[in-house]
Design a protein around this nucleic acid. Structure first.
Length: 430
RNA sequence: GUGGCUGUGGCCUAAUGGUUAAGGCUCCUGACUGUGACUCAGGCAACUGUGGGUUCGAGUCCCACCAGUCACCCCA
């Protein structure tokens, strides 16, 4: 039989990696709660139209990267390629507009994009995501940036930086796009073939073209910031005042654009090194038109999404230690059928006393103790024929190798004391 | 979707075109019939990614496909 392999671009998150994932998710939940965000979980798949409309046809994500299929009922279904559109659908469908504003929501989970995998890029990836709905004040933009920043700070990342830009709004962006088009048409013979297509199809994209020949053209291109309307200019300026006041480092990057249609005004990314050619660990911005686009009453929103795989890669690249859950402290070994019965009873009693314990399932005493060692047990309990006869068990300290005889009836109490005193004498790492 | 590189037990690695594909790690067993780690001895485990081709003979050379990986594109 042919070997099965995981589908391209997916990965098995093995036990050895779980501590990293646990740590990221714990930090996300903790920071999100501290800012007053409530968790929301939406389906992994939605009606295709939710994304086609919400993310926007014309974007690569919708046009080339969605996992779409018909279910048995003939419905057009798509595995979510991002969180925001689905969360907005849930907001509208559940009448969440009646909740106190601003509404703060966060999510974590898998998203799916059909891309060619490479370092830091997967077909099934995991994100954490936060949104603030119903608030047009730039303070909301600030808080979204802060929560992202704080999560990374809590994770002890270093050498991070914000990239910041504004993409305008329906009032001012069309005018800017015309300026940009005019400029590019004037330089059409100097730019790459991709950019020639982009001028018409996705004009803002020309700004983040990485080809050598396009760089001088990009450098001289008109900037959104010089063409925004008063509202957008004020919004952006206010946000920058807040960021400056807090001393948060950011780089104005007029080439920063988003691949998703719904963004307005603020766009930002958090950049880091250590994930191959990818630089963004986090991206987000404002999307004031999205809820209305999806059929809700006009409601402003701002949010971000961050890749968990990239966060884990960074933790490894920066040698950040993560807490590793302790192994069960007790391992029960035994000899003979009668002893096995006592071993099982003891296992139950220990768990009732909330002491982590495992019982040997087979093998010689030697093999059982080897198991205890491999599993990092602090104590081995050995139950043999001799001990049973006297109502005793052997309690072995695996670190030192010393052992003592303890009455069977008192083992649980003994271990409770031993483990409690051991905890006191051992300072947990910060 | 395009391009570069790479495919040998679970992992790492060896094998001038020439016997039965070798070794290390891991795992298991034993030396110690009631005691882990160290040591020693042994054992499990590979139709060399798949399919063709060249050759008397292919892990080795050629082609295709598949997979992995890195980069473009795009994004988290």
């Amino acid at each position: 039989m042919a070997k099965f392999t995981r589908p391209t671009g997916t990965q098995d998150i093995l036990p050895e990696d779980q501590p990293y994932w646990d740590h990221v998710l714990t930090c996300v939940a903790s920071v999100a709660r501290s800012y007053g965000f409530a968790r929301i979980d939406t389906p992994v798949f939605e009606a295709t139209e939710v994304f086609a409309r919400g993310v926007g046809t014309g974007t690569d994500i919708v046009d080339k990267e969605m996992y779409s299929f018909k279910d048995k009922g003939g419905n057009d279904i798509t595995l979510r390629p991002e969180f925001t559109a689905g969360v907005m659908r849930a907001y509208i469908e559940n009448g969440m507009h009646v909740l106190p504003k601003p509404l703060k929501l966060y999510s974590t989970g898998p998203v799916f994009r059909y891309e060619r995998p490479q370092a830091g890029r997967f077909r099934q990836l995991h994100q954490f995501n936060a949104e603030i709905l119903g608030e047009q004040n730039p303070l909301a933009d600030l808080e979204i940036m802060l929560i992202a920043w704080d999560i990374y700070t809590r994770l002890q990342f270093v050498n991070l930086s914000f990239q910041l830009n504004t993409t305008g709004c329906p009032v001012c962006r069309p005018g800017y796009v015309e300026h940009l088009r005019a400029y590019y048409r004037a330089h059409e013979h100097q730019i790459c073939d991709d950019c020639k297509l982009r001028i018409d199809k996705n004009p803002l994209r020309v700004l983040d073209c990485k080809r050598e020949q396009c760089q001088p053209i990009i450098a001289g291109a008109p900037k959104m910031i010089d063409h925004v309307c008063d509202d957008c200019a004020t919004h952006f300026a206010t946000l920058r005042v807040y960021l400056d006041d807090l001393g948060k480092p950011y780089t104005l990057n007029h080439r920063l654009v988003r691949g998703l249609d719904y963004y307005t005004k603020t766009v930002f990314e958090v950049w880091a090194e250590g994930i191959g050619a990818q630089s963004a660990v986090c991206g987000g911005g404002r999307y004031d038109g999205l809820i209305e686009l999806l059929g809700g009453t006009p409601t402003p929103g701002v949010g971000f999404a961050a890749g968990i795989e990239r966060a884990v890669m960074l933790m490894k690249a920066q040698h950040i230690a993560v807490p590793i859950p302790p192994a069960p402290p007790v391992f029960i070994a035994y000899l003979g059928d009668v002893a096995r019965l006592h071993a099982v009873r003891l296992l139950a009693q220990l768990h009732q006393a909330d002491i982590g314990a495992q019982v040997a399932m087979s093998g010689s005493l030697k093999a059982q103790l080897r198991q205890a060692d491999r599993r990092d047990a602090r104590f081995a309990i050995i139950i043999g024929e001799d001990e049973i006869a006297q109502g005793l068990v052997t309690l072995r300290d695996m670190a030192g190798g010393s052992q003592e005889m303890v009455p069977l009836a008192e083992v649980v109490k003994w271990l409770e004391n031993k483990l409690a005193s051991a905890e006191k004498s051992c300072t947990p790492l910060a």
